[in-house]
C-alpha cells in the first residue's frame, strides 16, 4: 500500500502539471517541436554570419528584436518564421507579405492568438506599413507581455518589402500584376 500511495501522489501531481500546462499563459510544448529547432538554428546561423547581417538575438532574454529587410527575407525564404500583420483587415486584404497572418492591434487578445495558431516558441516577425507605424511596436509589446519568446519587428514594413520586390499577396497586388 505504501508504494501504491507514492505512485498515486506522483500520478496525480503529473496530471495536475499536464492540465495546468494546457491552460496556463506560459505553457510549453510537451516535446520540443520544430519551432524550437528553428530558434536554435537561427541563433546558430547568427553566430556564423558576417557582422553586417548578424542578428541581435538572444533566446534566453524575452524581449522583441529589430530585424532588417534582408534578415526578414532570410527567415521568410527558409519558412522559419510566421509573419504577423497588425494593420486592420481592409489594409491587410489590399496588400500583405505572402502567407502573413492578420492580427489587428485593436482586436488583439489571447483567444485571437490561439485562433491564429501562434505558439510561444514560434519565430514571429511583426511588420506594419512603414517605419513610422506604431502598431508593430504595440503588437510586439503585447506578445512579449504574454511571454512569446522569439518576436522580431521588421520596421521597414510593407513599403520596404514591396520596394525590394519580395513576395506579396492581396487584392491590390493582383490588380497591379
Amino acid at each position: 500500500m505504501f508504494y501504491v500511495r507514492i505512485l498515486i501522489i506522483i500520478f496525480v501531481a503529473a496530471l495536475m502539471g499536464i492540465i495546468y500546462n494546457s491552460v496556463s499563459h506560459s505553457s510549453i510544448p510537451f516535446f520540443p517541436g520544430e519551432s524550437n529547432n528553428y530558434a536554435s538554428e537561427l541563433k546558430h546561423k547568427s553566430e556564423n554570419l558576417p557582422d553586417s547581417v548578424k542578428w541581435e538575438y538572444n533566446p534566453e532574454v524575452i524581449k522583441w528584436y529589430p530585424i532588417r529587410a534582408d534578415q526578414a527575407y532570410f527567415v521568410f525564404e527558409k519558412g522559419m518564421a510566421k509573419f504577423v500583420d497588425p494593420r486592420d483587415e481592409w489594409d491587410f486584404e489590399e496588400i500583405h507579405i505572402k502567407n502573413a497572418i492578420n492580427i489587428p492591434v485593436y482586436k488583439f487578445s489571447e483567444d485571437m492568438l490561439k485562433l491564429k495558431k501562434l505558439n510561444k516558441e514560434d519565430l514571429i516577425v511583426v511588420y506594419c506599413e512603414d517605419e513610422y507605424c506604431d502598431n508593430g511596436i504595440a503588437l510586439c509589446d503585447s506578445l512579449i507581455d504574454l511571454l512569446y519568446r522569439n518576436v522580431f519587428l521588421y520596421k521597414g514594413g510593407i513599403d520596404e518589402w514591396q520596394f525590394a520586390g519580395y513576395p506579396l499577396e492581396g487584392t491590390k497586388v493582383k490588380k497591379n500584376q
Binding site: I10, A13, A14, G17
Partner: peptide, 8 residues
Amino acid sequence: FVIIIPWV
C-alpha cells in the same frame, strides 16, 4: 520533466 517535476 519541466511540466511534471515542479508539481511533484
